[in-house]
């Protein structure tokens, strides 16, 4: 961006690049976005008029039986991979800063792969839940669950797109150490998306 137009002449007031301050500012704002979504989930918790429910089985008045919706093992795997991807993106950034093209491309690829797996896991999970009787409008649990995890998933998808764009840059040799801030911004965003999931996972899946 244009930060360098000024940076070429004088230092910034904080010594940090404008873009770095901007991404932190944006993340601060995003905290309120997810805080509101998570609050909405908690406010609506236990207020569904009909099942299926997250943790308990449910039999409809018509006699149809529904198992508890959540399946913890799969989402735990997705969570673990998402957490590892935060480590991978740090290694990729280190590679970018050192000018190690191999480390950059390899670790960034691993990060993207984890992100793709997580997003895929969520697509599978959503379809699976719908098959088991939880549509978006079935009950308040369905609406608030799909809204919260859906917006997190959208953030993951945007992160994957961003990282993949940088990965193509790296393959074309257009991500030299001097431009490693491009990756650092995406990495900060990626860590944030991870941290949000660290809150969502226990609040939504684990706490009964």
């Amino acid at each position: 961006m244009t930060a360098h137009a000024h940076a070429a002449h004088l230092e910034t007031s904080t010594g940090l690049d404008n873009r770095k301050v901007a991404i932190w500012t944006f993340i601060g704002s995003e905290c309120m976005f997810f805080a509101t979504l998570i609050s909405n989930y908690l406010v609506n918790k236990g207020k569904s008029l009909v099942g299926p429910f997250p943790h308990e089985p449910w039999t409809s008045p018509a006699g149809q039986h529904f198992e508890p919706i959540f399946e913890i093992p799969l989402v735990t795997l997705g969570t673990a991979l998402l957490l590892f991807s935060s480590l991978f993106v740090v290694l990729a950034l280190s590679g970018a800063q050192r000018g190690s093209r191999k480390a950059l491309i390899g670790w960034l690829g691993a990060t993207i792969a984890c992100g793709v797996f997580f997003a895929g896991m969520q697509v599978y999970e959503f379809t699976h839940f719908v098959h088991r009787g939880l549509g978006f409008t079935t009950n308040l649990f369905g609406s608030s669950f799909y809204t919260l995890t859906g917006f997190h998933g959208t953030h993951v998808a945007i992160g994957v797109l961003w990282l993949a764009t940088l990965w193509v840059d790296a393959l074309r040799g257009k991500l030299p150490p001097a431009k490693s801030l491009n990756l650092e911004m995406a990495a900060l965003y990626w860590h944030f998306v991870d941290v949000v999931w660290i809150i969502i996972f226990p609040v939504v899946y684990l706490i009964q």
Partner: peptide
């Protein structure tokens, strides 16, 4: 961001039939 989420929930209620603010569906 708070009004953004509130407007999203309202949009879901109106476009896709959720019940975040509709008492007959358990919403508030």
């Amino acid at each position: 961001p708070v009004i953004t989420v509130a407007l999203i929930l309202l949009m879901y209620d109106r476009f896709f039939g959720s019940a975040f603010f509709v008492p007959s569906g358990g919403g508030d």
